[in-house]
Nucleic acid binder design. Structure first.
Lengths: 191, 191
DNA sequence: CTGCCAATTGACAGGTGTGTCAAAAATACG
DNA sequence: CGTATTTTTGACACACCTGTCAATTGGCAG
């Protein structure tokens, strides 16, 4: 290969992810990412063609990491603990940073400036993937016996609840309150 | 009074609300509102000073209406039916229009460009108001007896769930799926 | 070392946004 | 009717954003 990339692509995509995460897709400018990554705007355009494509590249790593972490959180053999770990991970992730970075997926879904088809697909894939992990975990014999709902329904309620928690975090900015609400739901779902 | 307003303020605020609702605070421009309301941009600035203040004025009417409708939906004497009516109102409201307008409150909360203090307060007040209506309704003797959770906890779970439903609507755009998820939660909450 | 090719760089074009301002028009009131 | 006050109007200033492009730089292969 001739004329190699002069910036650290891995690092640049990480920075891009952080900026998108904090400000959201629509409010993030290429200059923001250029500044955060130390790569000139022109180089970003040369490497990724446009903002949408750059976002998708940055989102790839994010989605992968999220699925891994979710699977890890759900791995506890006791369903109740697994669900607590699941919410704990979600809440910790979104309340990290100053100001709290919130949730990249939710910000993107709600952002009317991110109505690109590829973006919607990427987001849907991640949320569907997380719902699948929940469904599989809740399908275990031990879990099924304790659930007030079929695994499929419980998984949808739970994934929907995480989206709601993200929104409520922006309103009250009180992690303890979020954890308490999540615990209430777990109580209601388990007999 | 001398030099009266020449445009219908009530109508203009209604149009502004619709535009903000559809596009979100950050993505809406004063020109969008000017076009939708038939009032020139300059007149809007003269009447409301800036975009934030105009938004707050438009949001007032929205919040009032939302609280009224929520109270109406929760009025059914049977708790289970009241909760179904509550979710039905929420889902119908957010799936109206083409494209579906979604939820103004959620869009505003998540929008990093709407991080003004007055806006955050207005949004928090509305959500707190809705939570209070739920809590009061669930504190009735008949409801308390059937709930799997104390009224305060159930109210928080429910209000959080509505926020989550808003987000999931943007992902799958399937009202039936939303209603089904809401019904699952009601089942889990009632014994 | 040399030539080729891609990446980098800074300037540029074109569009869009917010908010301001002075002149013109409209309105209420004495 | 005339005056005072406000609204309306269109132009303007200024900032910012996306995407492009030509010239320059840097690295790899032969």
């Amino acid at each position: 290969m001739v004329g190699q990339r002069q910036f650290n692509e891995r690092r640049a995509l990480e920075r891009a992810r952080e900026v998108f995460w904090l400000k959201g897709y629509g409010a993030t400018t290429m200059q923001d990412i250029a500044t955060a990554s130390g790569v000139l705007r022109g180089s970003l355009y040369n490497a990724y063609r446009d903002k949408e494509t750059l976002f998708l590249r940055a989102y790839e790593g994010y989605a992968e990491e999220m699925l891994e972490e979710t699977a890890r959180a759900l791995a506890h053999p006791d369903v109740e603990q697994a669900l607590h770990d699941f919410f704990d991970f979600t809440i910790t992730s979104m309340t990290m940073g100053v100001p709290p970075r919130g949730c990249l997926t939710t910000k993107t879904v709600v952002d009317t400036r991110a109505d690109d088809e590829r973006i919607r697909t990427a987001v849907r894939d991640l949320l569907d993937g997380m719902e699948r992990l929940l469904r599989e975990r809740l399908s275990a014999e031990e879990a099924r016996a304790r659930l007030a709902l079929p695994p499929e329904e419980a998984a949808r309620v739970l994934i929907t609840m995480t989206r709601g928690i993200v929104v409520m975090e922006r309103v009250h900015q009180d992690p303890a309150r979020l954890r308490s609400t999540a615990a209430s739901l777990v109580t209601a779902l388990l007999r």
